[in-house]
Design a protein around this nucleic acid. Structure first.
Length: 427
RNA sequence: GGAGGGGUGGCUGAGUGGUCGAAAGCGGCGGUCUUGAAAACCGUUGAACCGCGAGGUUCCUAGGGUUCGAAUCCCUACCCCUCCGCCA
C-alpha cells in the first residue's frame, strides 16, 4: 500500500510516477473521495465527542444521585444521527481502502521506461555460453531418455504442468536445495526458517497477492480460508506482520527458506507448456530481508549478488536485467531478474527475481521497527529474491552439462552432495 | 470428535456497565549515586488517525448486538490452554 497521505496530498505526482508502470490513477475520484471523507470525518468525530462528554455527565450525575432523565432527553437525538454519520464514514473509508488496495507500488527512479519484457535492460553478463558440436537436446528429451523424468506419469497422477522425477535426477534436484541452503546460511548469513505452506487471507494480503491476484493462487476448498503458497515470500515476509520489532540493532533480518510453490498459472495457457519451466508445483529457495529504510537499496544489490553466487558456483552462464516499469510486479519498486542460459531455447530464461518493496508490503502488514533515535515505530523495508528456483536450475544444469550420449555431467560444486557422482547416465 | 477455561499495552498480569487507554510488575529511556558498571532510588514510557495549534477521535483478538454510556453484558468467528478420544 502506498502512503495514503502522499496519495491524498500529491495525487498528480503519484499518478505520473505510476504511469511508468502503465497504471492510470484516477485523480478525480481521489479528490472527491477525499473531500467527502474530510467533512464526514469531522462531523462524525464531533458527534462522538458530544456523546462521550454527555455520557460522562450522566455517569457523574447518577453517582451524585441526581435525576438523569433530562440529560437522557438531551442525548436522544444523537443516537441515530451518529449511527448515520458513522455508517457514511465507514462507506467512504472502505471505498478509499478498496481503491488504494488496487494501486501498485511506485517504481524507483532508475527503473527504465517500457511496456513489456522486451524493454528490460541488461545490466551485465557472467560466464561463457557453451558451444556444442552435436545437436543439443532439451531437458525433456534428456530426462525421458534417461528414464528419470516422466511428464506423462505426472499427468496421470495429477494433470498437466507437473513432473515425476526418479533416481539420480531426483537426487540432483534434492541436492540443489541443500547446496543453496548451505551457501546462504553459511556464507551469506541467512537464518533458515521453516513455515506453513498453507496460509490465511491476511498473509496473502500482506504481500500484495490479494485482493488483486486471487486467480493466480490455489485456494483450499474448506470452511477455513487457506491458500497454497505461490512462494515462501508469503509466509516468511508475514513473520513481522502486525509487529513492532524492538531490537533495531538486530536488523537486517535475513531469512532463507526452502519451500514448494504452487501456482495456478491461470491465463498462461499455451505458454511454456513443455517441460519443467512453468509448473503448478515447484521448489524454491527464497531469500527474504527486513531492513531499515535507508539500507534497502544496498540490500537489494547484496541480495542479488547472493543469488548470483549460486549460478557462479554451478558455473551456469547468466545475465542480470533490470525490469522496466511495465514488467515490474504490483508490489515491487525495483526488480533485478537473473536469467540463465538455456541451450535448447538459445536464450536466457528467468531463474530468479530479486525485488525491493520498500515500505509497500510493510505498510500493508504494519511491519515496523522501533527507531532508537526517535523512539518511534517506523515502517521496515522488505525485500526478497529467489536463490534460486530449483526446477529451473535443474533444467539449466541438464541442458548446459549434457553430453553427446545423453548423459549429464554433475557440476563440481554439487558432487559432494551427490555422493561423489560425476555423471548422470541411464540406469 | 467430546467437555471445560481463556484472549487486555514490547512482555507478564489486574480490571465493580460510568471519572479506564486501562492498576501493578518486568523491559525500555532519562536521571541520582559511581572512576566505570551493577544494585538501589527518582522520573518517564502504548498505537493509529484528524488538526497549523489548542485539542479531538479510534483501538482491550475480529465482526455484530444491547445501552445515554461497553475492556466489562449478549451472539458469531478465529486463535490459545486443560482433560478425554483418535492419530504420523
Amino acid at each position: 500500500m502506498l502512503d495514503p497521505k502522499l496519495v491524498r496530498n500529491e495525487p498528480e505526482s503519484v499518478a505520473s510516477a505510476l504511469a511508468k508502470k502503465g497504471f492510470t490513477l484516477d485523480v478525480e475520484t481521489i479528490r472527491s473521495l477525499e473531500e467527502r471523507r474530510k467533512s464526514i470525518q469531522s462531523k462524525t468525530e464531533a458527534l462522538q465527542q458530544e456523546r462521550n462528554q454527555k455520557s460522562k455527565g450522566i455517569g457523574k450525575a447518577k453517582a451524585a444521585g441526581e435525576d438523569i432523565e433530562p440529560l437522557l432527553k438531551e442525548v436522544e437525538h444523537l443516537k441515530s444521527e451518529l449511527a448515520a454519520a458513522e455508517k457514511e464514514l465507514a462507506e467512504v473509508q472502505s471505498e478509499w481502502d478498496a481503491m488504494l488496495d488496487g494501486v501498485p507500488n511506485l517504481p524507483a527512479d532508475d527503473v527504465p521506461e517500457g511496456k513489456s519484457e522486451e524493454d528490460n535492460v541488461e545490466l551485465r553478463r557472467w560466464g561463457q555460453v557453451p558451444g556444442f558440436d552435436f545437436p543439443v537436446k532439451d531437458h525433456v528429451d534428456l530426462g525421458e531418455a534417461l528414464a528419470q523424468m516422466d511428464f506423462e506419469l505426472a499427468t496421470k497422477l495429477a494433470g498437466s504442468r507437473f513432473v515425476v522425477m526418479q533416481h539420480q535426477i531426483a537426487k540432483l534436484h534434492r541436492a540443489l536445495i541443500q547446496f543453496m541452503l548451505d551457501i546462504h546460511i553459511e556464507e551469506h548469513g541467512y537464518r533458515e526458517i521453516y513455515v506453513p505452506y498453507l496460509v490465511n487471507r491476511d498473509s496473502m494480503y500482506g504481500v500484495g497477492q490479494l485482493p488483486k491476484f486471487e486467480a493466480d493462487l490455489f485456494k483450499i476448498q474448506d470452511e477455513r480460508e487457506f491458500y497454497l503458497i505461490p512462494t515462501a515470500e508469503a509466509p516468511v515476509t508475514n513473520v513481522l506482520r502486525d509487529e513492532i520489532f524492538q531490537d533495531a540493532n538486530k536488523l537486517p533480518l535475513k531469512f532463507v527458506c526452502h519451500s514448494p510453490c504452487f501456482r495456478s498459472e491461470a491465463g498462461s495457457y499455451g505458454k511454456d507448456t513443455r517441460g519443467m519451466i512453468r509448473q503448478h508445483q515447484f521448489e524454491k529457495v527464497e531469500l527474504v530481508q527486513f531492513v531499515r529504510p535507508e539500507d534497502s537499496d544496498a540490500a537489494l544489490e547484496s541480495l542479488t549478488a547472493h543469488a548470483e553466487t549460486i549460478l557462479q558456483r554451478l558455473e551456469l552462464p547468466y545475465r542480470v536485467v533490470i525490469l522496466c516499469g511495465g514488467d515490474l510486479s504490483f508490489s515491487s519498486a525495483r526488480t533485478y531478474d537473473l536469467e540463465v542460459w538455456l541451450p535448447s531455447q538459445d536464450k536466457y530464461r528467468e531463474i530468479s527475481s530479486c525485488s525491493t518493496f520498500r515500505d509497500f508490503q510493510a505498510r500493508r502488514m504494519k511491519a515496523r521497527f522501533r527507531n532508537p533515535e526517535t523512539g518511534k515505530p517506523e515502517l521496515l523495508h522488505t525485500l526478497n529474491g529467489s536463490g534460486l528456483a530449483i526446477g529451473r536450475t535443474l533444467v539449466a544444469i541438464m541442458e548446459n552439462y549434457q553430453q553427446e550420449d545423453g548423459s549429464i555431467r554433475v557440476p563440481e560444486a554439487l558432487r559432494s552432495y551427490m555422493g561423489g557422482l560425476e555423471v548422470i547416465s541411464k540406469g
